[in-house]
């Protein structure tokens, strides 16, 4: 009994990266804030690429608290959606090229989001990683942490609850 031969690395990588790119590029607001995602297997790290337009207090200067909240929320939704879609991408139910063409499954919706501001956001890049604490049929609970220079010195953390896309497999990838 031999196990099936593993797919070539490039095939696996290309499929996963193309699917992630399709998801990220489909959201104008993610482009507006210039947030990119780094992938290690199924783990994502969000990167908020600094720009002057993200400043909230020009005297300090510091990143706008609303931008920090948005960055954490974008990372939370993307991580949750990614983990939710991962099995379908791997099973071939979702085709990355069709996703890139706009055939995207519905995303989770934010129910509530609570941000703790621990330090002021410095005028430089920021990073965030989310942990899906629980993902059920209807609801999911996600924690996010964000840092800049030191991974163990968080400048913000957040918790959010999300409503998962409803309506089963058939409607999941509708193209309306």
């Amino acid at each position: 009994m031999s196990r099936p031969r593993p797919e070539p690395m490039q095939v696996v990588k290309q499929r996963r990266d193309a699917a992630l790119t399709a998801l990220v590029d489909s959201v104008p607001y993610i482009r507006f804030l210039d947030i990119s995602f780094d992938r290690r297997g199924d783990e994502l790290t969000g990167q908020l690429n600094f720009d002057q337009k993200l400043i909230g207090n020009p005297y300090l200067p510091a990143i706008h608290g609303g931008v920090t909240a948005a960055f954490l929320e974008v990372t939370a939704v993307m991580t949750l959606n990614w983990l939710h879609l991962w099995p379908k991408i791997e099973a071939g139910e979702l085709d990355p090229s069709e996703m890139a063409a706009g055939k995207l499954p519905r995303q989770p919706k934010t129910i509530d989001f609570t941000v703790d501001y621990l330090r002021s956001g410095l005028p430089r890049d920021a990073y965030a990683r989310a942990t899906v604490a629980r993902s059920g049929r209807r609801f999911a609970s996600v924690r996010v942490e964000a840092w800049q220079d030191h991974k163990d010195k968080l400048f913000a953390q957040a918790t959010g609850h999300f409503l998962m896309p409803q309506g089963g497999e058939k409607n999941d990838a509708n193209t309306s």
Partner: peptide, 19 residues
């Protein structure tokens, strides 16, 4: 349109509402 969070519906992203 640059603030859209859901490209299917054109709904503004929650993050922009947060800001």
């Amino acid at each position: 349109t640059k603030l859209i969070g859901d490209p299917k519906t054109g709904v503004i992203h929650g993050g922009a509402v947060s800001a």
